[in-house]
Design a binder for these strands. Structure first.
Ligand code: FES
Ligand code: FES
Lengths: 173, 173
DNA sequence: TATTTACAGGACCGAATCAGTCCGATATGA
DNA sequence: TCATATCGGACTGATTCGGTCCTGTAAATA
């Protein structure tokens, strides 16, 4: 999380963007201090050690997507819209980067040119689903839990029960 | 695969780049016609309906990464370096886009600023591993197999036996 | 040997995306 | 009324992406 800013490695795949990176750190911070009613951008920026405009931008999008609730005016700020157990990493990533789709046809059906002899569609959908599941099985509660197992097999993760069985994260946008 | 070129959607996460897109289609084509000894760029470009320079570029990288073997000179071309069952999607993606790492610390350890109180490291590694597994469980043989199940649960995929238990795809670079 | 075919490697450029900043408007509390 | 803070969006420089092209080298054929 929050990569160093001097070196640029950048030749790896599926890396999430910096704002997403920031956003998840910020959410973890908010989840870790539930006693504070509203966090304003300046305070969060101080805690996370990031410039205020950036934090502000991230907070705004998170609020717009319904992951945070905002309170305007003096003494205003942000607070979590749901319980940490009900906020999945899939929700966070979706809010900050858009829907998960490794292939075009995974976001909107059939943009593929050779739709007819595209024998590749099935396998990609499967892989896409696995990724979705992986992100949906980890919640903000896990992120802020120091006892979260650092060594766990993929099968074990996917075998866990989903957190909220009913409606896993549709938000009022 | 091979998205239409007119509309640009592009606000989704984990989408693979076009060259990777092309590359996998090309590999599928090569795997589907094993009787031909060597495929040259022009022929492949015709089959896949893509400009020759692009196909050439993709083929070159695939050869350099060891997924294809190349034969220079007249009557030259490319052919698969391994059996389709031994070539995983993880190999393809790694060759065309680099290593899978959603977070910086998944590619090189500890570039995270707040390494001390980074409670987020563990969960991210887990998610990263699940993605790797998903890609490693699907092979070129699956891609060209019309009977590949289009509906299959993530658990079933990860439950499958890895194709080659010994040395899952290190290549002579 | 001369010629043709086809890969190897890399330079190159325009387009699109990303990261970060800033501004005017609005809402709330004192 | 004033200070504070979010809201929405515009804006810019840096980077990456997608695609083309050029020079060199290896192999086959006549
Ligand atoms: S050290 Fe890897 S996410 Fe912080
Ligand atoms: S239709 Fe989705 S990959 Fe071809």
């Amino acid at each position: 999380m929050i990569r160093a800013s001097i070196p640029e490695v950048s030749d790896s795949v599926f890396r999430l963007s910096k704002i997403t990176d920031y956003g998840i750190v910020i959410l973890a911070h908010l989840g870790r201090e539930p006693e504070i009613v509203t966090h304003n951008a300046r305070e969060v920026a101080g805690q996370v050690d990031l410039p205020v405009p950036v934090v502000s931008k991230v907070l705004k999008t998170l609020a717009r997507k319904g992951l945070l609730e905002s309170q305007r005016g003096a003494k205003g700020g942000y607070l979590l819209a749901r319980r940490p157990e009900d906020l999945t990493v899939a929700d966070m990533v979706a809010a900050l980067e858009g829907p998960l789709a490794i292939t075009e046809c995974n976001v909107a059906p059939q943009l593929c040119q050779h739709e007819g002899h595209c024998a590749v569609k099935g396998p990609w959908k499967v892989i896409n689903d696995v990724m979705k599941e992986a992100l949906a099985r980890v919640t903000l509660a896990d992120l802020i839990d120091p006892s979260f197992p650092s060594e766990i097999t993929p099968l074990q993760i996917l075998g866990r029960l989903p957190r909220s069985e009913t409606g896993p994260g549709v938000h009022h946008d």
